[in-house]
Amino acid sequence: MAISTNFWIWIAALLTLAIYSFLYKDNPFYKFAEYLLVGISIGYGISIYWHNTIITKVYNPLVYDKNFLVLIPLLLGLLMFSRFFKNVSYLSRIPIAFVVGAGTGLSVPSSFEFLFKQIYATMPLKLDIGSLIIVVGVISTLVYFFFSLEHKGFVGKVSKVGITFIMVAFGAAFGYTIMARVSLFIGRIQFLLSDWLGIIK
């Protein structure tokens, strides 16, 4: 393999290097790449929304299928823009009320089911040291997040166990985070060495 002759790979590689140059110190190359990213992601988002929402969910049903019911959600959606005009801004509360109402209605039962599933998962389906650790961990952590009681005496001791569990979980999460950040860097290095420079396969 040899160095890439693809123009876009060169662009991608140079932008990657521009972003990494920040590690040495802040500089105009980094700033350029950063602003480019912000701009492009907004532009990309708008084009996707245009095609997949306005065209397929509003324009097509309205023009081709003559489905005029679409006008109702369209009107509700447009009311959101009333926030930009002070004297009618209260109108934006109507669509927000719809979204909040429907969202709560959908999420409350589902959240409960989710909670039930997690409680179910804590139930020791077989007796072993693993399920004991889980039960102790869950209960002591719950005690730590108990605010109506002073953390003294027995409650204090249990919450100490709880915070220990929390810290162990944080340690695991921290380790995983390091792993993730390294992986991201590896992905870029792989791109630079293989797709761009062609040093490795």
Binding site: M123, P124, L125, V135, I139, L142
Partner: peptide
Amino acid sequence: MLLIIAGFVIS
């Protein structure tokens, strides 16, 4: 907590 403890004792 009570539910979990109950489940544990029963199990």
